[in-house]
Amino acid sequence: MEDHRIAVVIEDDDDIRGLIVALLGQSGFEVIATSNGTDGVTAAREFDPVLITVDLGLPDIDGYEVTRRVRQFTDAYVVMLTARTEEIDTLIGLDAGADDYLTKPFRPRVLRARIQAMMRRPRASQASVPASSATPATPAPGVPVVPAAAGGPSSGPGSVPGADAGRRLNLEGLELFPDLHLVEAEGRAISLTPTEFLLLETLMRSGRVVRSKAELSRIIRGDEPDHGNYVSAADERTVEVHLGNLRRKLGDSPKSPRWVQTVRGVGYRMAGSPQLLGWQPSGR
């Protein structure tokens, strides 16, 4: 984790806001607290936090709109907090760009665990380590390893200077750079939330191996995919929403997928076998 981490808390209830501020302060965050959505968006823009908690029922603009606005300029982890318990509220929140959704009343240790799980996921602003100096990742079984070749991200819009030697996963025009937190589809830079990036990287590393919704849900929570921890229907639906958002951003049709394929009644996998470019073959 970063040595200096800033969190923005957007909550109009004084008691809950104080609780979250205390919890995050104990967890090592510098906390900026606001009581309405407009000030919250301003604080997120000014302080560039790694974490934002958003209450859904704010006095000016609701938490959905707050999340949509901050997603225009930040890849911070966003946790939506609300007293609403309907599944549709959860789905709308995730669709707006939230990484997680917690209903009130919540136990402080549950919020702390959710945040710790999210903080283990990469953010674009964290992924600044040059690929040549990064620790090699372990390729998924059955995924072909291709030595680094000339070129890398396209020179089109969204390309990252100096990334042409970066390690990447490639599948028919879709490229994911783990060390740079960068995704390109046909040379077009794709802006993903940390959760969407994690799901896409998991599927690309798995190749043609199907990953169930329960496995993907556990991965989002920071658990081992086969740990056996309980996964509810709402958790699985959350995975569906994140993957739906991912497909929409990629421009990938669920009916005729080029990249992300649904295996009905089982889960998800890639529609082809990604190559790992830039990884050194074993034994070298």
Rank of each mutant, 00 (worst) to 15 (best):
L23K: 08
I32G: 01
D15T: 07
I20D: 12
L19Q: 06
R17D: 04
A7T: 01
I6F: 02
T34F: 00
I16L: 05
G18P: 06
I16S: 01
V41H: 04
L24A: 12
T42G: 03
L23E: 15
G25N: 15
R17L: 05
V8F: 01
D39H: 11
L23V: 04
G18N: 15
A44P: 08
V9P: 03
D12N: 08
D15P: 15
V8A: 02
D48W: 04
A43L: 02
I6E: 03
V41F: 10
A43Q: 03
A7P: 02
T34C: 07
V8K: 01
V21N: 15
T42H: 04
I20F: 07
Q26S: 09
T38V: 06
V9F: 12
I10C: 09
I10Y: 13
L23C: 07
S27W: 05
A33R: 12
A43F: 04
L24C: 12
V21W: 11
F29T: 00
L24E: 11
T34N: 01
I20W: 10
V21G: 08
I32P: 03
I32D: 01
T38S: 09
R45P: 01
G28S: 14
D12E: 10
L23W: 07
N36P: 10
I16V: 08
F47H: 09
I32A: 01
S27H: 13
